[in-house]
């Protein structure tokens, strides 16, 4: 009787210690893995922000303004060559998807407005481009490399995060994914 009791006690003690240690290890591993892509991951809600829009004399736009629409957020800069390469694709698909309730929004990371305005004119960009002058939205979305593109559905959830340049075909298929239903 005494023996089985003792054995049970030992089993409970060992299990408790192992569970505790396993918990700590899991915490460390998850903590470390999520450190690198900390803030906005696929499947998470895209955090709100508010920035000034180019070509509007300082009018601001926020992500909340686009509620109910699919939103493609493209982080770019004029000095970034691959960003420049994908601009025509975005412009090409923009009118088609705008009608279907998808908004393409560029978040520009340049310092000088003049350079960006010239760039927008040169490529005839008609989708809204916002100025993230202090890099705050970039920080919020933890964008490391540009171009980086977030595809957000009508519920405000990030469906896809693409780091690096997009082809026309890929862009088209991602945009289809965030097209509002109904």
């Amino acid at each position: 009787m005494d023996k089985t009791k003792k054995k049970r006690k030992r089993l409970i003690f060992r299990s408790a210690v192992l569970v505790l240690l396993l918990g700590l290890v899991a915490f460390a591993v998850i903590g470390n893995l999520s450190k690198d892509n900390a803030v906005v991951a696929e499947g998470e809600e895209a955090p709100n922000f508010q920035l000034k829009q180019f070509g509007t004399n300082g009018k601001t736009m926020s992500l909340e303004d686009l509620e109910g629409k699919g939103v493609m957020l493209n982080f770019w800069a004029t000095y970034c060559k691959p960003c420049e390469a994908e601009m025509p694709y975005m412009q090409k698909l923009y009118p088609k998807y705008k009608d279907k309730g998808v908004e393409i929004v560029g978040v520009n990371l340049d310092a000088t407005k003049m350079i960006v305005n010239k760039f927008i004119d040169e490529y005839d960009l008609t989708f809204p481009n916002l100025h993230d002058e202090g890099g705050q939205v970039m920080d919020l979305y933890n964008v490391g490399q540009i171009p980086s593109t977030y595809f957000i559905n009508e519920d405000g959830v990030v469906v896809e995060k693409v780091v690096g340049p997009l082809t026309l075909e890929k862009l088209d298929s991602y945009l289809q994914q965030i097209q509002p239903k109904g």
Binding site: N48, F49, Q50, L51, T60, S62, D132, Q136, L140
Partner: peptide, 8 residues
């Protein structure tokens, strides 16, 4: 001091 909206 104002309610924080990132970027504003």
């Amino acid at each position: 001091t104002d309610p924080r909206v990132v970027g504003a």
